[in-house]
Design a protein around this nucleic acid. Structure first.
Lengths: 203, 203
DNA sequence: AGCAAAGTAGACCGACCTGTCTGACCACAA
DNA sequence: TTGTGGTCAGACAGGTCGGTCTACTTTGCT
């Protein structure tokens, strides 16, 4: 059967870890989409497995539990967002306020993308509200990272009270995430950008 | 019709409505607390009934389904919040900006109260994301009401673009709700108030 | 070729889910 | 007293949940 292994696609998975990654990846991306559209508790394991085309044992070998899978989805997503945002910031215009406003431009793109169905981190904290639950912890870590990123940008601008401004900008950012989802208002991010510009000018 | 109007209203109406109300109330308040602390899908009907001390048939006679109960909880809560906020606004200081800032003072009290475990409306929209689902509709209606209330206040101030400012303030408000819950930061509302003052001054 | 690791399908488990139904209870009105 | 309407506890139904387990097939490396 495997005589003709030369051209078989799976051979790309050279090592076991690469092979694992393929199934792992399928689970993570399918889970992310289903959870985003329907919610965490609303999506059952069996639905997810059928959609991803993966056996149940694989899921439990890879992640151990549904909650761990959720946490893994969130951590992976946090990494993608962070690096995507960093890339955007790297090419921001020279204007001193430009880098901050670029964050809101990036936000506008995010909430307008068809894959956006609300912030997965906020939803995770809502559905797993106990401090010890892994999804909640992942959400807290990501949001803290957002605030720190904003604070760092404010600090580089030499603003008087960078922490204060960063927290204010963070409020706008989270508000835009919520209202984009709740009112399906694609303009929310634009309004947040406008407000951010005002706060920046005043600081 | 009501000849013997001394004490007896139409028999069925008086007794039943009074009794119904008591059980209805127990269900609504217990449901609100459990849903707030654990989430909607995480709380089963049986848990809720045991906690409220009510029989299952009563729930289904009163509300018809779990989703309808959730919608009823949200509508009742929306009414309480609206009237509470209106009362607060009625006693706001004379300063022209005072009424807007009073909204954020009221917000600070809300998120600091021990019963606050995140915004029930945001959570409802997260767990019931389909446009046709009643909890989501109740959430959308409430958030739209919030925006309109802010817009009305802005309009009374004679601001150039009241809708724009109202949307920006709304972003701050929702952001404060989210971050109060997610980072357990009781200062979020205060920062929102500060930012609102800046936006107001600039408008 | 042969072996170990990884993945497969699907049966199975007990717990729990929402929602229905029965028959008894109890307060009150005629 | 008798009737009536709302409430009660709890059994029940049919499904789904997260998770475990077994027995089999594929895969990659030597």
């Amino acid at each position: 059967m495997s005589e003709r292994a030369t051209t078989t696609k799976p051979s790309a998975a050279r090592t076991s870890s690469a092979k694992v990654s393929s199934k792992r990846e399928a689970l993570l991306s399918t889970a992310q989409e289903l959870f985003a559209r329907q919610g965490y508790r609303a999506v059952g394991i069996d639905t997810l497995l059928a959609e991803a085309g993966v056996a149940k044992m694989t899921l439990y070998k890879q992640f151990g539990s549904k909650e761990e899978l959720i946490a893994a989805v969130l951590e992976r997503l946090a990494g993608e967002i962070t690096s995507g945002l960093a890339a955007r910031l790297a090419t921001a215009t020279g204007s001193s306020h430009g880098r901050i406003l670029a964050v809101f431009d990036w936000l506008a793109d995010w909430v307008r993308s068809p894959a956006f169905h609300g912030c997965l981190f906020i939803k995770a904290a809502s559905e797993y509200p106990e401090p010890g639950e892994r999804p909640r912890q992942a959400a807290e870590a990501f949001k803290a990272g957002c605030r720190e990123l904003l604070e760092e940008q404010c600090r580089e601008l030499g603003i008087a009270d960078p922490e204060r401004l960063a927290r204010q900008l963070h409020l706008l950012l989270e508000g835009a995430l919520v209202l984009s989802f709740l009112e399906r208002d694609p303009q929310a991010a634009t309004h947040a950008r406008d407000a951010a510009a005002v706060l920046l000018a005043a600081a």
